[in-house]
Nucleic acid binder design. Structure first.
Length: 736
DNA sequence: CTAGGGTTAG
């Protein structure tokens, strides 16, 4: 001992200042333990030295409980705890329930749940405090099945739960699927006489709310004699979680009337309700309240506010919140990304997602879902492939939501075959997955495949839903299958599905396009619900195709009365007149539009070259390679003429919807995009173009021929569907 | 030693 360097240094060692905190004398072994915790870097050699010592030096007057409990509380690492535990064992006081409970709680706090369990298992006869500690640990880390398992074991061993056990058990019940367990616990709570314990009762309320049994939650809540802010919050969030934000808000009002002051958790729930109803004004007033009550520094409250602003379309405000957050957590990232995606800021959403990845920030399935949705909006097949590739390497490959979104994304990015690949590689398919694929085929006019898939779906025992039928009807529509569509529509009732506006509009479209205008009209007249914009719009568009002026005017009238400021309706009617060469009425519509201050939508086309999107509008000369583009355009025009192409001049010339033709050269935006695509990609490369309006008949015919002349596949996504041009024909069969 | 909250939604 004399030679020990420790003795030489002990006077000056900071340990002595630490010792003065404790009221009792301390042994060398204790010294070593403290050292190892407070000064891990220097402790090893001391521990080694003392490990050969016996513990005869211990003073029996020493107050173990307070000394070790302080040590445990000061532990910041698992190794601290294991050393203390070893020490307790060495001292023979490892059956001290108080200290072991503390140890377990401390382990839980450090996230060392399996270590906590190990310590628990080594304890011979745990009392209710120990059981509570371990159940609490499992519940805290959402290991609900373990929590319930411990709860059951505890009762087998005749340890009765107390008022501290039950809230954790209830939380676990709420987190598990099914609610039988929770119901049993509720019965037990009643028998054990906890009906006046506000902690326990709040847990019961929250449990029922989580399981969707909001009525039961309300019954328990109403039965409470004393309600604190937690009781109210449980009820508010319960309504929110069950899609009843209005009710949630009225509970909040009630709470305010009874004079209970909301804390930040309560406000988070209220903000969520405002977010759900997209009520920006009231959301803002809650924001004001947050500032007034001095809670604006509460990070989670700021996250809820960010989500609210993002979802309500105030993405700039949301972004400034986001940027101010020192440590943005996953939920905040998700709120921001989904907010962008939801409000049409698809590029921003994707950019933020990429930022997460390049900074190695953890993503979850919600992040990925939102990002995929954003990619679908962007419409770039290269981006879509990148996303698919990323997911293939992630842990989200089996996420049914992610895969359905991927199917939708590939379909919307023009590659329905890749959508099918995702579909085929997903083993567990639900209705939504099947429907997404059917909708994808519908979008591309592949009616046969959609119908075949529907058969397979039924064979697989999956029951169709309203979206399935929407996809099927669209598919029939885009491939001219009137009979199939008609039958499918009528088979909806066999599955107990009530058709909605969109289904009716599809049928009107289906009948109308095929020329059955009278039938379409009768169909509308016999609809059980009031026909809306989509239905009349479908009829008007069919009247335009078949030049049925009187019926078209009738449909337009209905549209004007429903939406008097929607430019599209005027344009459609004008197109109908133009197709019937009624130029005076075309002019009248123009005057009418001018009077109402409406102007037609500007057409533009996007083409992706080397992963970059290039935009063109009609007659666009702003591109740096504009000269080359127009040269290519002229050469195309020449070759078209040589091939015998005669432009339609009757309707499209006066078609307000489409960009006007300039002299002989057609400079519609998609033609510019095609020309640019041709000069900037290798021969044979597929061109992928996105257009915001519907393709005009002239460009459609021209594109067919161009695909043959230049031997390229050209994929055009217009406002309505996809067109695949190849070898002089289009996948839509000129039916769109 | 207790309880209540937020991101998504094909």
């Amino acid at each position: 001992m004399a030679s020990s360097p420790f003795l030489l240094s002990k006077i000056s060692h900071p340990f002595y200042s630490l010792c003065s905190l404790y009221p009792t004398k301390i042994t060398l072994l204790d010294f070593a333990t403290v050292l190892s915790i407070k000064f891990p870097a220097t402790s090893f050699k001391f521990l080694k030295h003392f490990s050969s010592n016996d513990n005869s030096l211990i003073f029996h007057t020493f107050n173990f409980d307070s000394f070790y409990s302080n040590l445990i509380d000061n532990s910041t690492q698992k190794t601290n705890l294991t050393q203390i535990h070893a020490k307790l064992l060495l001292l023979g006081i490892h059956q001290n329930g108080f200290l072991i409970t503390k140890l377990i709680n401390s382990a839980v706090k450090l996230g060392e749940i399996s270590y906590a369990r190990k310590v628990f298992d080594e304890f011979p006869e745990p009392d209710v405090y120990l059981w509570n500690a371990i159940i609490r640990g499992y519940s805290k880390y959402n290991m609900f099945a373990n929590a319930i398992e411990m709860y059951s074991t505890m009762q087998v061993l005749w340890v009765s739960p107390d008022g501290y056990t039950l809230p954790h058990v209830l939380k676990a019940c709420g987190g598990l699927p099914g609610f039988e367990m929770g119901r049993r616990v509720h019965g037990q709570i009643f028998r054990l006489g906890f009906e006046k314990d506000v902690f326990v009762q709040n847990g019961v309320v929250a449990f029922y709310a989580k399981c969707g049994k909001i009525a039961s939650a309300k019954v328990v809540f109403d039965g409470l004699k004393f309600r604190n802010v937690v009781s109210w919050t449980s009820m508010i969030s319960g309504y929110s979680q069950n899609g009843l934000p209005i009710e949630a808000l009225s509970v909040f009002d009630e709470m305010r009337e009874t004079g209970v002051m909301p804390d930040w958790v309560a406000l988070v729930s209220v903000i969520r309700a405002h977010t759900d109803v997209e009520d920006l004004e009231h959301g803002k007033s809650i924001h004001g309240f947050v500032i007034k009550t001095g809670l604006e520094l509460e990070p989670d409250l700021l996250i809820a506010l960010t989500a609210m602003y993002a979802k309500c379309g105030q993405v700039m405000v949301a972004r400034s919140f986001f940027d101010q957050m020192k440590v943005p957590n996953l939920i905040l990232w998700n709120a921001m990304i989904s907010g962008y995606a939801k409000n049409g800021y698809a590029e921003e959403a994707v950019e933020l997602f990429r930022e997460m990845i390049s900074n190695n920030i953890r993503t979850d399935s919600i992040t990925v879902r939102s990002a995929v949705i954003a990619c679908a909006q962007v419409g770039s097949i290269e981006l879509a492939r990148w996303m698919d590739n990323y997911i293939g390497k992630s842990e989200h490959t089996d996420d049914i939501f992610v895969n359905s979104a991927l199917i939708d994304m590939f379909a919307k990015c023009g590659n329905v075959d890749m959508a099918r690949m995702v579909f085929d590689r997903t083993l567990d398919k639900d209705v939504v997955m099947w429907s997404a694929m059917i909708v994808g085929y519908g979008l591309h006019g592949r009616g046969r495949e959609a119908l075949d898939l529907y058969q397979l779906m039924k064979q697989a025992g999956v029951c169709p839903n309203d979206v399935t039928f929407l996809g099927l009807l669209t598919a029939c529509n885009h491939s001219g299958r009137v009979e199939d569509g008609w039958q499918l529509f009528h088979s909806m009732k066999d599955y107990g599905i009530e058709p909605c506006h969109q289904h009716y509009a599809c049928v009107v479209d289906l009948l109308g396009r095929a020329g059955y205008l009278d039938q379409a009209y009768d169909f509308i007249m016999n609809m059980p619900i009031e026909p809306g914009v989509s239905v009349w719009g479908a009829l008007l568009s069919a009247c335009k195709i078949h030049r049925h002026v009187t019926l078209g005017e009738y449909a337009a009238e209905r549209l004007f009365s429903l939406e008097s400021y929607n430019t599209g309706h005027y344009v459609q009617l004008s197109n109908l007149y133009a197709s019937s060469r009624m130029w005076d009425r075309v002019a009248k519509i123009r005057v009418l539009m001018r009077e109402k201050g409406l102007s037609k939508d500007l057409g533009y086309s996007l083409i992706e070259i080397n992963g970059k999107l290039q935009a063109f509008c009609v007659g666009d000369k702003s591109h740096p390679r504009s000269k080359e583009i127009y040269e290519e355009l002229e050469s195309l025009e020449r070759r078209l003429k040589q091939a015998g192409f005669i432009p339609h001049t009757d309707s499209s010339l006066h078609d307000l919807n489409y960009e006007e033709i300039e002299e002989t050269l057609c400079n519609h935006s998609e033609r510019l995009a095609i020309a640019f695509g041709l000069i900037s990609t290798a021969p044979g490369t597929t061109l992928r173009i996105t257009k915001n309006l519907r393709a005009c008949i002239n460009c459609h015919s021209a594109t067919k021929l161009i695909s043959k002349l230049v031997n390229r596949e050209i994929v055009v996504r217009d406002a309505n569907r996809f067109h695949h041009f190849k070898d002089g024909v289009c996948s839509c069969g000129d039916y769109w």
